[in-house]
Amino acid sequence: MTSTPLRLMQLFTALSAALLTACALLYAVDPPAVNGVVWIRAAGILALSFLSLRWAAQLRRGHRGAYRRLLWVSIAGSLGIAALALLPDSPFPLWFRLEQSAQGLVLLALATTLLRPSLRATLEPTR
């Protein structure tokens, strides 16, 4: 099994941790710049990234369930981040939306990787 999904999720997790760290640092300097919605989303994304990292490790061992969960997260996450970045009345500041766009690109790369027939052929058969 290829290690590309695992590496992409490691990158996604690192970006998620950096996002939460940036929120904390910015809050220390300028508290109004980091509203409650930003904190909740940043913490939620980090939590999801840890789950997804676990699923990517399971996928590396050929688990079909992990494949389905990662595919769902990569597609829904890409669409959700695109909506977040493009909404004109978004409650998120520009710096946050730019970072989220980078994470959306990682999820898009993950979806592209997961949809390769060669990767799907390596999964355990459905019971």
Rank of each mutant, 00 (worst) to 15 (best):
V73E: 06
G44V: 05
S74G: 08
A83V: 14
R61A: 15
G44L: 02
H63R: 13
S52M: 11
I45A: 10
H63V: 03
R41K: 02
S74A: 14
Y67I: 01
A85C: 10
L70T: 03
S52Q: 05
L59E: 01
A43Y: 13
W55N: 08
L84M: 12
L59M: 05
G65N: 08
S49M: 02
Y67Q: 03
R60A: 13
R68Q: 14
G65C: 13
F50G: 01
I81G: 10
F50S: 00
A47Y: 02
I81N: 12
G62A: 08
G44N: 14
L59G: 00
G80L: 03
L70D: 04
V38H: 09
A66P: 01
L71T: 05
W39R: 01
L51W: 11
V73M: 07
L51E: 13
G62Y: 12
R69S: 12
L48S: 12
R61F: 06
I81Q: 14
I45Q: 12
I75S: 12
L53M: 05
G77M: 07
L48W: 07
R64C: 07
R41G: 02
V38A: 11
G80C: 07
W55V: 04
R61V: 03
Y67S: 01
I40G: 04
G44D: 12
I45P: 10
W55R: 05
A43F: 06
S78D: 15
L48F: 05
A56K: 10
F50A: 00
A76G: 00
R69N: 07
V73T: 14
A43V: 04
G44M: 07
I75L: 09
L70G: 09
L59K: 00
A47F: 03
S74D: 07
W72K: 02
A76R: 00
W39P: 03
W72R: 09
V37L: 06
L71F: 15
A83T: 07
A42C: 04
L71C: 08
A76H: 02
F50I: 00
A56Q: 09
A82I: 01
Q58S: 12
H63S: 15
A42M: 03
R64W: 14
W39H: 02
A82P: 14
I81V: 13
R68A: 10
I75H: 09
L48R: 14
R68D: 14
A47C: 05
A47Q: 07
G80Y: 02
S78M: 13
A83C: 08
S78Q: 12
G65M: 02
I40K: 07
A83W: 08
F50N: 00
A66E: 13
L71Y: 12
L53N: 13
V37Y: 03
R61T: 11
F50T: 00
A66L: 02
L71W: 14
G65R: 02
I40N: 07
I45L: 13
I45S: 15
L84S: 12
S78F: 04
A56H: 02
W55K: 08
L84Q: 15
G62Q: 08
W39I: 02
V73D: 06
S52N: 10
R69L: 06
S49G: 13
R68G: 05
L59F: 13
A42K: 05
L48T: 11
